[in-house]
Amino acid sequence: MKPVPFTVKGTIVTTTSISSTRSPLRLRAKWRVVDIVVASVVGVAIGLVYFAWDQVYVPATAPLEAALPGLQSITYGIWLVAGVLGALIVRKPGAAIFVEVLAATVEGLLGAKWGLLTLEGGFVQGLGAELVFLVFVYANWRVFVAVLAGAASGLGMAVNDLTLWYAGASQGFASAYAICAVVSGAVIAGLGSWLLVRALARTGALSRFASGRSAAAAN
């Protein structure tokens, strides 16, 4: 391998300070390396939590199911946290889908019972949240947007589950399942993720993200 030729040019490349107060949307939409890697890490960590939840959810939700069929999905919002959380942290287009699918992948690799289908479920759930952030052109990260995103993610999950696993279910079961999934998504994944990001910002872990700086400044 030949050495890369380097000549010191006569002109000096100056990197003067640029202090634009607001970068244009195009710039803000571009993923930095740290966005990609931290989004991945969050996806992986939450994937572990999903897997842990997989091990316990059947006994945990059985009483609910017995009380009112379809009600078990009131706890399923836990499976929706990754997408909303990831998007709230890195604030980039596609983050909700990316992080939710990745969490599902980890869950699948660890041995979740649905194997590759976990990924498909993750995609549909992430898509729900993603669409809400898209409607707000990735510029609004307030709590009500997070709650809407969580609800939309829950709707995605309900549609997916009712198609895949409960295709023959009665109207009553399907409605109860869907309503509970949406509520659970809104509360656990929406409000829950928003609170989580605020707590994370206080630890300084999000200092390289606008989400960490704005939340820290609000304190």
């Binding site: 740290v34 890697v37 931290v38 991945s40 890490v41 969050v42 992986v44 960590a45 942290i89 989580l196 994370l200 630890t203 872990a205 999000l206 390289r208």
Partner: peptide, 10 residues
Amino acid sequence: LLVLSIRRGS
């Protein structure tokens, strides 16, 4: 765990 992992990720 989330705090530690985000740090590590950065």
